[in-house]
Each structure stands twice: as structure tokens, then as C-alpha cells.
Design a protein around this nucleic acid. Structure first.
Lengths: 215, 215
DNA sequence: TGCAGGCTTGAGTGACCGCTCAAGATGGCT
DNA sequence: AGCCATCTTGAGCGGTCACTCAAGCCTGCA
């Protein structure tokens, strides 16, 4: 009976492959890649080893697939909600930073950035993982640069938006790292405030260029 | 004979405890904490298990001692060499960033920041490690803040040097992470260039305050 | 109804993990 | 010389690691 009940319940559930990725996403984020055993993933996904290894022949294949999922999730889960409630292109950048802040709040600053964690843990030793992490960073960078390009007319004329987007990502990752190490939002808030101060100066400078005669 | 020879050779060598820390420092930096087995440390230090566990009862004790070493090494290995060749307090901040750049060059961007790596890998699960990582970050922050305070008169009057120092550390860590993920100096150089652009504006703003009549 | 292919089952694999400990070597003190 | 504290030796512990595989189940199609 419990087997039948299980089957009925499972009808509405996600397919096995997705359940594995769900479990791996949570556990890798919370404990790291090496520290998370396959057994823990199996338990959380309620599966046997064979099922998992049918879809992911090795643990590395699993984390690679997870990074692909992050790549496809960036737009619908991170970017779109921000763009929905904010239209100003520069404010959208800070909206993304605020979205990350909410994640820090909801995890009490304990977990940090799932991609950044994998970046530091595996870039040395797992070249394929490193490449996919780099692709994720590229996509983040491109999203931020898109905002900056859209607000280009309010920035100083010779602004390098690619460089500035890289800088925004740098600040985000560095700030999340410190927040995680200090278990406090303060370093994050301070860093974002300082980034805001920089943008204020860039915007002020550009508006001076536009109406220099008025002074 | 080989034993006697070994003994003679060892006379000039570092004590056991230091050799363990040397080996752990290299291996944790290159492979991470969890991925480095005690056996690998023993092999690199040319020791038996008992010797290591005599000084460090658990693996966690070992990484905690390593973080203490980083704390004591910061000044003589990182700060002092920069202060020796640069006197301008603001330039000293960028001298520290340049020192880190040299480390990236010498490791081909593969390893990143040893403290940052431990921060992301272990902060979730090892509270004592997290606390010592935080102490390391605090000390880095204090060193940078010291420079900023020394150059205070050239910064805008109401500059929060603590916040700005946190920001510098944020940029450093975030930039190193991206350099490691991309295996390229570009993200680091771009981020530092952007930080420099911010400082240029802060310095220009402050000098406007000082001589507003001359314009 | 039978069959083929995708998927699941779960006990089992050897290797490696952090760590133990009883025995012995060593150097300094009296 | 005798003795203690400090340190070293290395075989070996129980446990966990990523992973295997032969067998069976389920579904869709002929």
C-alpha cells in the first residue's frame, strides 16, 4: 500500500533527474561539493544509487549539470523579477544587488553565493567546472552590462561598461564573501553603499557634461 | 646510515609543527581543505600520522593554527614590503592590491586567496574556522583603514574610512575570485582600475573643497 | 500478448578517510 | 646513571567515499 501511495504521490512530482538536481543544489550550496556525499543527495532525493548514476555517471557530471541549471535560471529567477519592478536601468543594477541581499537575509548570511562557492572550491582542480563557472560569471556580467548600456547616456561618455559591469560583479561576490565570513549583513551593505557612492559621482559627472553652461 | 644522514639534514630544518603547517598551507591553498587528506600532508612533510596528531589532535585544529599563522604573517609578509617601497598612504592601498596581483601572476591565477578559499568552503559548517577567517579579514581591513586614516586629509571630509576599507577588501576578494574562475588577470585589473577611478574622484572632490576660491 | 528499452533496485566494491595507540627513541635534568 | 617528559613510529581501526551491476519493474508499442 505504501508503495501504491508513493506512486500516486510521485505522479505530481518532478522527474528523477530534477529531484537529484534539487537535492544537489541545496546540499552543495549548504556544505560545499566535496563535503557533500552522494549518499546525502540520495537520501534527500529519496532515491537509490543506481537511479542517480543512470543520469549522472560521475559526481562531476552532476555539478556540471547544476551549473547549466544556474545558467538557465539566471534570467527567470534573478533578472526578470528585478526588471519587473524597476525600470530605471541604473537602478536595476542595484535592484539585482538588493535581490542578492534578500537571499543573504533569508539564509542568515550563512551560505553565500552558490556559484562563487563552487568557483573557489573547484576551479583549481576541476577544469570543466571552472569553465562553466566562468560562463555563469560571463552571463551575470552581460546582464549588468545590459543595464549599464541602457543607461549609458547618464554615465560619463567614455565609460567602459564592460569593465564597470565586471566591477559590479566583483563587488557583489566580495561583499557576499565577507558577509558570510562575518555572519553579518554589514560588510555587504557597506560595500553596496560605497558602490552607490561611486555611481552617484559617475552620474553627477555625466550630468555636469550635459549642462556645463548652467554653472 | 640513511637514518643518521637524515638526522644531520634535519638539524638545519624547521621543527615538526612548522613543517606540518608548511605542507598544510600549500595543500589547502591548492586543493582546498576537504579535498586535502591528512595522508597528503604527511607525505609532503615526510612524517608519520602520530607526529602530526601529537601537535594537532584534529584536522580542524590544523586549519585553525594555519589561520593563526596567516594572522601573524600578514604584517611581515604582506604589509611591510609594500610600506617599505611606498610612503604615500593612498598609494599604499594600491600597493597592497599590486602585491596580491603578483601572487596571482606567480600562481597563474589558479589558486586565489588562501583565506577567501577557506572562508567559502568552511564558514557554513565550521564555526571556529569562520571566526578565525573573520579575524583575518578584520586585520586586513584594519591595515587598509590605517592607510586611509593616514591619508584622511586628502579624502572628502566625511569619508567613512572603515566602510571604504571594507570596500577595498571586498574588491580585492571579488576580483581574485573572478580571476581564478576566468584564469585571467583581466577581471582583477579591470576591478582595480575601477577602484582607482573611484579614488581619483574622491581625491579630486577633496581637493576642490580645500581650494574652492582658486577657480 | 509479447517484447524491447528506459528506469529503478539495493547489496556490494575497493579505496581512502580522519584518527588511534602501544611501543620505542630522544634529550635534558639530577 | 637513572628518569621523566616530549616526541616519533607505523600498523591498523571503523567508517565513509564514489561508484558498480545483475536483476527486475514499468510503459509504450506491435
Amino acid at each position: 500500500m505504501s508503495r501504491a501511495q508513493r506512486w500516486i504521490d510521485d505522479q505530481g512530482e518532478r522527474p528523477t533527474r530534477e529531484r537529484v538536481l534539487d537535492a544537489a543544489m541545496q546540499l552543495f550550496h549548504a556544505q560545499g561539493y566535496t563535503a557533500t556525499g552522494i549518499a546525502a543527495i540520495l537520501e534527500r532525493a529519496d532515491l537509490n544509487p543506481g537511479s542517480l548514476f543512470h543520469f549522472f555517471p560521475t559526481k562531476e557530471d552532476l555539478v556540471l549539470a547544476l551549473l547549466d541549471r544556474y545558467l538557465t535560471l539566471l534570467d527567470p529567477m534573478v533578472i526578470a523579477p528585478v526588471f519587473e519592478r524597476i525600470t530605471d536601468p541604473i537602478e536595476r543594477v542595484f535592484g539585482i544587488l538588493d535581490g542578492y541581499r534578500r537571499m543573504l537575509v533569508s539564509t542568515e548570511c550563512a551560505l553565500g553565493c552558490p556559484i562563487g562557492n563552487l568557483a573557489l572550491e573547484l576551479s583549481d582542480t576541476h577544469p570543466k567546472v571552472r569553465a562553466k563557472v566562468a560562463a555563469n560569471f560571463d552571463q551575470w556580467c552581460a546582464a549588468v552590462r545590459g543595464c549599464l548600456d541602457a543607461g549609458r547616456n547618464r554615465l560619463p561618455p567614455k565609460t567602459d561598461t564592460d569593465r564597470l559591469a565586471t566591477f559590479v560583479l566583483t563587488v557583489m561576490e566580495g561583499a557576499v564573501m565577507q558577509a558570510k565570513a562575518q555572519r553579518s549583513l554589514d560588510p555587504y551593505d557597506q560595500s553596496v553603499a560605497e558602490l552607490r557612492a561611486y555611481f552617484d559621482r559617475l552620474l553627477a559627472e555625466a550630468s555636469d557634461w550635459k549642462k556645463p553652461r548652467s554653472s
